[in-house]
Amino acid sequence: MSLNRDFIGHEAPLGEPLEVTRGDIRRFATAIGDDNPACHDRAAAQALGYADVVAPPTFLIVASTGGSLGGFIRDPELGLNYAMVVHGEQSFAFHRPVMAGDVLNTVARIQDIRAVGRNELLTLVVEVTSNGEPVATVTNTLVSRGTAAPKQA
């Protein structure tokens, strides 16, 4: 079934604010095989001029999708079947790096839903802030495989 176009322009926080701990950053860095001391050790991060351990750039996917695509992306009314979803595009534009101690808030907006052949592309733009200060803009394009309505003859 096709995605519900009424959701284009829909805007809302994606879940609760994310309190970023050193453990979260270490666990993520370990999972991507990144042994940079600045991601694991506070003193090493401070030697680079940061207040606390620094997250790898793609860590923000955790905040910007509510982990496993939470929030209104899971609204049955939208009609997204998660097993049919693959990732199309992803970008991060940073005002500053994410660090342990941040409390990340998100406002996500469905910018577009459009059919490309038999697939549909959903573009989600997430503004991430901490204490009201901008941290990053995260843009995520999901591919919903085979859900586009067949072309009318």
């Binding site: 940079n36 680079l48 620094v54 750039p57 793609t58 595009e89 970008s91 991060f92 534009a93 790096p97």
Partner: peptide, 9 residues
């Protein structure tokens, strides 16, 4: 330094 990445797409 992972904090020096300004954007990545």
């Amino acid at each position: 330094d992972p904090g020096r990445v300004v954007s990545y797409g």
